[in-house]
Computed example of a mutant assay.
Amino acid sequence: MRIARLLALCFVAALAQPAVAADLRLGYIDQDLRPFLIGDGPEIPARPGVTIELAQRAAAKVGARLQLTRMPLPRLIEEVRAGRQDGVLSLRYSADRTADLVFPLRAGRPDPDRHVARLSYSFYKRRDNSVAWDGTRLTGLQGPVAVGGSPLISKRVKSLGAQIVRSDTGTQMFGMLAMYRVDAVVTLDAMADRLLPVQGYSQIEKLSPPLVVEEFYVPVSKAFYAANRELAERFWQALGDLRDATYAELTPSYLF
């Protein structure tokens, strides 16, 4: 009788112990893409960016111990393939990447409800010039276009026949536009739509449709998914559940 009671007490005590947190090793690119990712190089700053803070909150919600590393994307993909990283924090979906990675899917396609970030880039111009964009053709340019964001955005603008000027900040780009040094700007909507009213540039307007709209996900390796399927699915769901409120709360503090 005493043995049975002792076993029962041990069982209850075991249940009362907190579960051991699972490790989730995610890497992300070592390039500044504010407000989503902050800073260049391998260091992770104290204020790492909205996307990183979202991932931290999602990991805490599902009881995962998040380990973050920054490195160039080609090396990161190799690290995931080799099993030294579990996944990539913020990556575009492409069919060829599914050979090594598992993305959050719905009906065989990337699940738009479980992306970690949506980046929309648009053209902005002065109201007094004739620059026009119909989603296919860019017309009316007399001067260069200031471009922020990844090299892929610059490549896309160049493909439209524009001369580009690289710029790191929205303040600089819109200052160049207001001073007639460039004819248009291409940058993140999230940044521009908050910055323009603060800067008072009423002579600048956004053109529709966006030049590029991209959704980014947190794919994991096939080996990690096979061993931790429930954790991966819960983490992806937590990203979707927390994303909009987290971005609304944190984005303004990262833009100015």
Rank of each mutant, 00 (worst) to 15 (best):
I3K: 13
I3Q: 15
L7W: 11
L7E: 07
L7N: 11
A8K: 15
C10H: 14
F11S: 14
A16Q: 08
Q17P: 08
Q17F: 13
P18G: 05
V20L: 13
A21D: 09
A21H: 02
A22S: 11
D23M: 03
R25Y: 04
G27F: 01
G27I: 01
Y28D: 08
D32P: 00
R34E: 10
P35L: 00
P35I: 00
L37P: 07
I38S: 03
I38C: 00
D40V: 12
I44A: 07
R47F: 08
P48F: 02
P48S: 00
G49E: 00
T51E: 10
I52E: 08
I52S: 04
L54T: 09
L54A: 11
A55Y: 11
Q56V: 00
Q56C: 01
A58F: 08
A59T: 03
K61Q: 14
G63H: 02
A64K: 01
R65Q: 14
R65Y: 09
L66R: 01
L66W: 02
L66G: 00
L68Y: 06
R70V: 05
M71N: 04
L73I: 10
R75W: 04
E78T: 14
V80W: 07
V80F: 10
V80I: 12
V80K: 03
R81L: 14
R81A: 12
Q85R: 14
D86R: 05
V88S: 01
R92A: 06
S94T: 13
S94F: 11
R97V: 01
T98P: 01
V102F: 02
F103Y: 07
P104K: 13
P104I: 07
G108C: 04
G108H: 06
R109S: 12
P112I: 10
P112D: 10
H115A: 13
V116Y: 02
A117N: 15
L119F: 13
S120A: 12
Y121N: 11
S122W: 07
S122E: 06
R127C: 00
D128K: 07
V131E: 05
A132C: 11
A132P: 06
W133M: 04
D134H: 02
D134E: 06
G135S: 08
T136R: 15
G143L: 00
P144T: 04
A146K: 04
